[in-house]
């Protein structure tokens, strides 16, 4: 769909295209992450084959799992706050859907061109905390309550380094608009060298490192998985969930991994743009989503690599790591970036 075609369509027609695009953008990366990384890469790293029976190399395993979860009984525990309990997974999944709205996949292939794009994405990503607290509180289970509180404590602690790491990029790009950040990287130059643009992973490497660590914690992936630590809290806030509502939390977790990796790809890897290659906009609209998917999978590979490699932190180490290391480092990063920006 080229720019010319899009301009001729009415708003409702564009909206239908965008809804279809959104479903693809949420579900395809989430499915790829679960199959490729969670099933297969994890298995290979542990010297086993992983799922092999359903379809070639177990590629139909996901469908089999969804079919299984669809048939499971929907249980509500005694004393649960039923309405809150039922809505909690929906809130978590919905927050993921909205995070994707500001991610651009091509020069014209975007969902919503919001001027304060990255700020909006960070704001709605915090909505999932409310869903998790709802789940933890409504379950009327001690493990769930502890898991919910831990989750909230962890998510707000790592929200700060995440936001402060993004600030470095905003200072360099001079805009909060996601499309603007992509353009700034595509047309930028590093100290006078401009042939690959200026992907901020190079000039904002400290910010990138802080962002990746904070992202790992925001996704509650090991080594930051205390909210769902199975040896301490069974399954944390998800303990009382069964059937499809449990699967919604699971989908939410990996769809959020996709959303965060998309944001990281836009902020630090140049988004849909190919470094040093200038195709015209029509081609980039088709190629852009594939470039984005590649960059997202690179980011998720890093997250999963850390996940399968490191043992879990202790809860106090988690908080101290955020407050005593990540936040001062990212504050210094902001200061240095601002000084360099004004000096050059």
């Amino acid at each position: 769909m080229s720019a010319v075609v899009l301009a001729d369509l009415a708003y409702w027609q564009v909206s239908i295209l965008r809804v279809l695009g959104l479903l693809a953008a949420v579900l395809l990366p989430a499915g790829t992450i679960v199959y490729l990384f969670l099933f297969k890469m994890m298995s290979f790293m542990q010297s086993r084959l992983g799922p092999m029976e359903a379809g070639p190399y177990g590629s139909m395993q996901l469908l089999a799992e969804v079919g299984k979860w669809l048939q499971k009984e929907d249980l509500f525990p005694n004393g649960a706050d039923r309405r809150v309990f039922a809505w909690a997974p929906i809130v978590v999944v919905a927050s993921t859907f909205i995070m994707y709205t500001v991610v651009p996949f091509g020069p014209d292939a975007w969902f919503a061109d919001i001027p304060t794009g990255i700020y909006f994405a960070l704001a709605v990503s915090s909505v999932s905390v409310i869903g998790i607290l709802m789940a933890g509180w409504a379950s009327a289970n001690k493990y769930s309550l502890m898991g919910g509180l831990r989750s909230a404590g962890q998510l707000i602690a790592y929200e700060l380094p995440l936001v402060l790491a993004v600030l470095g990029v905003v200072i360099q790009a001079g805009t909060m608009n996601m499309q603007g950040i992509v353009e700034a990287q595509r047309n930028g130059e590093m100290f006078g060298v401009g042939f690959i643009g200026n992907p901020y992973i190079i000039t904002q490497f400290v910010g990138f490192a802080v962002f990746m660590i904070a992202m790992q914690a925001e996704l509650t992936q090991p080594p930051f998985d205390m909210p769902v630590a199975e040896s301490e809290l069974v399954a944390g806030y998800m303990t009382e969930y069964s059937g499809f509502r449990f699967l919604l939390f699971f989908i939410g977790e990996y769809a959020t991994a996709g959303a965060f990796s998309a944001i990281a790809a836009v902020l630090f890897l140049g988004g849909w743009a190919l470094p040093g290659i200038g195709f015209d906009a029509d081609i980039m609209n088709l190629l852009g989503p594939l470039v984005m998917l590649t960059k997202m999978m690179l980011i998720v590979f890093l997250v999963m690599w850390f996940r399968f490699t490191y043992p879990r932190f202790r809860e106090d180490q988690l908080q101290i790591f955020a407050w005593k290391y990540l936040i001062p480092v990212s504050l210094v990063n902001i200061a240095v970036t601002a000084v360099l920006k004004v000096a050059f």
Partner: peptide
Amino acid sequence: RSYLTVGIFVGVAVTIVS
């Protein structure tokens, strides 16, 4: 319109999940 798109997406998320 950008924010209307956000509203539509919220509706889509709730509808799909329901």
